[in-house]
Design a protein around this nucleic acid. Sequence first.
DNA 1: CTGTTAGCGCATTCAC
DNA 2: GTGAATGCGCTAACAG
Lengths: 346, 346
Amino acid sequence: MTAPGNGDTRASRSPTLRDVAREAGVHVSTVSRVLNDQAATGRITQDTEERIREVARRLGYRRNTIARALRTGRTLVVGMVVPDVANLYQAEITRGAGDVFYEKGYSLILASTDDDPAHAQSQVSAMLGVQAEGLMYGVARGPDAVLAGIIEEEIPVVLFNRAAGDLGISAVLPDDHGGTRMAVEHLIALGHTKIVHVGGPEDVSSTVNRLQAFEETLHAADLTGSYEFTHRQTEEEGYRVTGTLLEQRPDTTAVLAANDRLALGAIDAIRATGRSCPDDVSVVGFNDMPYADRFSPPLTTVRISQSELGARTARLLLETIAEPQRAPETQLVSARLVVRGSTAPV
Amino acid sequence: MTAPGNGDTRASRSPTLRDVAREAGVHVSTVSRVLNDQAATGRITQDTEERIREVARRLGYRRNTIARALRTGRTLVVGMVVPDVANLYQAEITRGAGDVFYEKGYSLILASTDDDPAHAQSQVSAMLGVQAEGLMYGVARGPDAVLAGIIEEEIPVVLFNRAAGDLGISAVLPDDHGGTRMAVEHLIALGHTKIVHVGGPEDVSSTVNRLQAFEETLHAADLTGSYEFTHRQTEEEGYRVTGTLLEQRPDTTAVLAANDRLALGAIDAIRATGRSCPDDVSVVGFNDMPYADRFSPPLTTVRISQSELGARTARLLLETIAEPQRAPETQLVSARLVVRGSTAPV
DNA sequence: CTGTTAGCGCATTCAC
DNA sequence: GTGAATGCGCTAACAG
């Protein structure tokens, strides 16, 4: 068989420490020391150092990160698992995190799992296989076997967006409770009393938190509301579930959706019944996804800075990598209500 | 635990081939053969094979990809460089590509460069450092030093979205020419004769192609139009440049933007002059970014399937990795005009 | 100040 | 059918 990894297929193998050493007339370890800025510690002659650096540059030497990693255990690679990169707000998180990692010299392996555990499992396996130093995990679910496996590996992990019970691991989460309360209070202030809630998937932490805050806030105002879960955070699901809710409660005047995509679907559903948003039914979303201000009507929603959420998760992960024994912590990213055109007085 | 007590300092170092071999009472190489499905080639006893697999599973053995890579040269890692992940249509490309890589067992290192060459350079260096097997490069510019460096490394690269002269490397590009022609013909059919073009950055291939098609199509109808470049593909730039154009040519009735974000800015600029879109001025975008149908007005635009573009780039890259000497090829992703609310008869 | 030595975990050629 | 030996490229402990 033709064995592929056999050296001389490539015209010019990239130069190694040995090549540099030979060319500079010194030993490999000397080169290694210089190129790792340990010239001082190793007390290398200024002259030798300069010569080595010059040769390295001339030869186009580039450190082989994986060889180094095999020796040192440090790959400078981290993994990030999201349900769907193409989802706008998740892309913002990715960006916020990516900027932090870039600044610290880390490379980011990104995996989009379509919210499928099997998919997540194999992607995580691959990340562990390349010895990623830590993981950002954004697909946590109620009982999460994949996550349990990761924890068992004792590799630094920070959850984001979704919590996962009391597994004792760090997380950066949106302020579901505060955000939802603001949204509900806004609707109540507008005179709404018949409010329904379109929740997310039942086994996702933010779904639970938002639902709870929804009910608590209504209760505090001596109101009650009904709700329904969705299977996924899509427009289609928002449409479907809002339709059901509207049928059960035809006198509904406001819909609180657990996220913006569901809210968009809710607006579609309202229109499908011949009603108008916001004239007949108000809608509030959650996240303030990009372009929410340009929709028709512009979406009233709870703003969470996704890039901040991503950046904070990345920083926390890096800190955990540097100091694995540090106590787990949960950070909340604050929420702010952004009132736009999809809500109006009753 | 039934693990043999060997004095490891680390509480639980992850098991290596050696651990499995010791536990199974065979040699490391035998384990390696079995776990690489070379049991047949190596003529291993069925019995030995089963025992090894069982032990590996029990110990939770996971192949160390980087150690293997050091030996074989195959990392199963590819890199992808985009201007900005948070950009909606780029996120779609990422998703399309990611799905293909996942299916083939590759991990994806994603770098978002903010369209800054220095940024791109260091990210690419990092990717080469971890011995990525190939690169998807989506930030090509007129003269591109970073790209030149990559080519010199003789590592498989496939450009996407933007071409880069005649460097003899593969690319997957949108059908700029066809798409633009359809858009201009649509405007002409609506009776527009005073059409301006808001182009992208001057040194990006699609900007050049779209401008050229714009002028050709107008010329074929005995018309002429003016245009202006932007520095970046943002709403702000679209707003700024459209403002300039509208001032120079107050009788303009249609704007063709080189992409949807610029188109959004154009609509803002039109409104800022007290005019309305589409009643006074029609606007056409390019890309059909997610939610373009929900904007106000819904955007008439040229649709390019971004996930298809990403997927095809990924496939082409994988093929190039498998067969490095294959001739470079350029694939065009077809365009389709999607008529919505931002265009109307004069 | 610099060279020598010894692996990191794995795949593979060669013995037997 | 399986074991022994070698080295991918690098860093680090130890010798001079």
